[in-house]
């Protein structure tokens, strides 16, 4: 069987690996979004006491500073004494928590680029802080955040391939199977895999750009 027949035969498994990568990506971005937004809001609008702010700073530094592969090992092996976490969950947690650190920074600079007068005007009209954030600040910050967030999306796609070190069989690992069972063809197989990652990245970016265009407002500075 030549490599193209094998690729054709095993293409569904590559797609399955791609599916695993997509679910991992969606889950880690979702965790990163929720937690990152929470961190951003507490940092900017929460109590300014050290007890609250300091742990957030430490969290951000740690998760941005430690290589993801080490985080994967820590969550998979290190936490096994505390809770038995399956590899896929460990990957979602390790990568999601790290993405939260990055996303919190994206959101923070997006929120900070909304002029102070916007909050002041909203409060002066009788909006509570929460309403002002929700109706006035968040929609503007979202427009600032979407560009950097697209970058985060693209870089996390590439990171998902590292989850195989703890046994998550995603796209790269499926490609390894083909390479080892056919004793070679590294270039051909990885070219196909690269194409799949590229398509995923382009599809995601197109969606985000479309979202950006939908939110576009005349004269609103990006």
């Amino acid at each position: 069987m030549d490599i193209y027949d094998v690729l054709l035969r095993d293409f569904p498994f590559l797609l399955k690996g791609l599916g695993v990568a997509i679910v991992l990506l969606a889950a880690l971005l979702a965790i990163g979004f929720l937690l990152g937004m929470a961190i951003c809001l507490i940092t900017l609008y929460g109590p300014k006491t050290r007890l609250v702010q300091w742990p957030l700073v430490v969290y951000e530094r740690v998760f941005r500073g430690v290589p993801i592969i080490i985080m994967l090992f820590i969550f998979f092996y290190g936490l096994s004494g505390i809770a038995d976490i399956p590899a896929f969950t460990a990957a979602i947690l390790a990568m999601g928590l790290r993405s939260a650190a990055y996303q919190s920074q994206i959101f923070r600079s997006a929120f900070q680029s909304v002029p102070a007068g916007q909050m002041m005007a909203a409060r002066a009209m009788g909006m509570s802080k929460v309403k002002a954030i929700r109706h006035i600040i968040f929609p503007q910050a979202a427009r600032h955040a979407i560009g950097p967030w697209t970058n985060e999306f693209s870089s996390e796609i590439k990171e998902t391939s590292l989850a195989y070190v703890i046994g998550v069989v995603e796209l790269t690992r499926q490609a390894h199977y083909i390479i080892t069972s056919t004793q070679g063809n590294v270039l051909t197989v990885f070219a196909v895999v690269a194409l799949l990652y590229f398509i995923l990245n382009r599809a995601g970016n197109s969606l985000l750009y479309a979202f950006e265009r939908k939110l576009a407002v005349p004269g609103f500075e990006k």
Partner: peptide, 24 residues
Amino acid sequence: GITTSILPAVMVGTMVLGSSLAAT
């Protein structure tokens, strides 16, 4: 536009988490 577009993504993420936790 923003709320309605983000919600599904968050829900998918939560469901994925839920099902993988249930699998343990």
